[in-house]
């Protein structure tokens, strides 16, 4: 009986400690999001008011309205969505193929190729950005085309890089898919081969359906990182307004608009850093919310894939 009680107290203490820890860590994780949410709904007076901490006294949607308008939200959202969607689908196809090739086939140089994939991950993209820009600005396919064509400002750089598995962090996706395929049983494939299925049929019909959780994880990563990406989009699509660029430029547009409408407000110190902070927070919420929705929808697969991947080398 005493032993039983001791065991139960121990269990209780452990779970209590765990709960406290988890709550503490969740607080640290959620703090920036909560900060951002609460400031996004504040008016400028609230930010100066020392007694206002989390809940704005004069909640307002003005920040969101301003940002919605000046980010040209609907159109930039559409562009960003299209870009993120098509690059992640292409990356998914290529990275799962390459991952499968590395996981299941023994051929000379397979380790080298895996090493190269990891190498692309290690080199900071900033390092090759300028040559990449020149490469696409005067694109001649290593000198095969006689007249170089200008691919800057089109979707081609993204399409080409995604399709060849060299886009942003694609080395990581190749790594994830390789580990996932490695963890799948061989029996199914062998049965398919014995039945006379070709390499690609086996891959599409047998391996891909079994790898859905891994694919969802990769898709989520790739969509999120493309969505938030600033470097590639500003380099290859400088003029066009995708969400990151729209967000960055919106504050000064708002400034100009208010200036034109009401010179008095502008000169009274109304447009200061704090005001920028408010509208930028509202803008960030507008950028993040679609990702949160996507994450909530996909997280079921995501957690499942944690349970199933053997991301063990």
């Amino acid at each position: 009986m005493r032993l039983f009680v001791k065991e139960r107290t121990k269990k209780f203490v452990v779970s209590l400690l765990r709960t406290i820890l988890l709550i503490g860590i969740s607080y640290v994780i959620l703090l920036p999001l909560i900060n951002r949410l609460s400031t996004a709904f504040m008016s400028v007076e609230d930010l100066y008011d020392q007694s206002v901490r989390w809940i704005p006294r004069n909640p307002t949607l003005r920040n969101f309205r301003l940002m919605w308008e000046h980010m040209d939200y609907v159109r930039s959202f559409g562009r960003s969505f299209f870009l993120a969607m098509f690059t992640s689908v292409l990356q998914l196809i290529t990275c799962s193929m390459v991952g499968y090739g590395l996981a299941r086939f023994k051929f000379p140089g397979s380790n080298l190729i895996f090493g190269l994939a990891i190498f692309t991950l290690v080199v900071p993209p900033q390092l090759i950005m300028v040559p990449m820009y020149l490469n696409f600005r005067f694109f001649d396919f290593l000198g095969i085309l006689k007249e170089p064509i200008n691919l800057i400002g089109t979707y081609w750089p993204f399409a080409l890089m995604s399709f060849t598995g060299t886009g942003f962090r694609n080395g990581l996706y190749i790594f994830i898919m390789r580990q996932f395929f490695k963890g799948m049983p061989r029996a199914l494939e062998e049965a398919a081969y014995i039945d006379g299925a070709s390499l690609f049929t086996t891959f599409w019909r047998v391996m891909i359906p079994g790898a859905v959780p891994g694919l969802v994880t990769t898709f989520l990563f790739s969509f999120v990182w493309q969505w938030n990406d600033y470097l590639y989009v500003t380099t290859f699509m400088a003029g066009r307004s995708f969400l990151p660029q729209a967000l960055e430029g919106a504050a000064s547009k708002v400034h100009r608009a208010i200036n034109e409408a009401d010179a008095l407000a502008a000169s009274s110190g109304f447009l200061d850093d704090h005001f920028y902070s408010l509208i930028n927070n509202a803008g960030m919420i507008l950028v993040i919310v679609p990702l949160l929705i996507l994450y909530i929808f996909l997280q079921r697969y995501f957690v499942e894939s944690i349970e199933r991947t053997g991301i063990v080398g």
Partner: peptide, 21 residues
């Protein structure tokens, strides 16, 4: 099989990574 499946990456590596690098 190994060659075919990893071919896209090999092309990409040369064109869009090694060359700019």
């Amino acid at each position: 099989g190994g060659f075919l499946f990893t071919l896209p990456f090999l092309i990409g590596f040369v064109l869009f990574f090694l060359y700019p690098f």
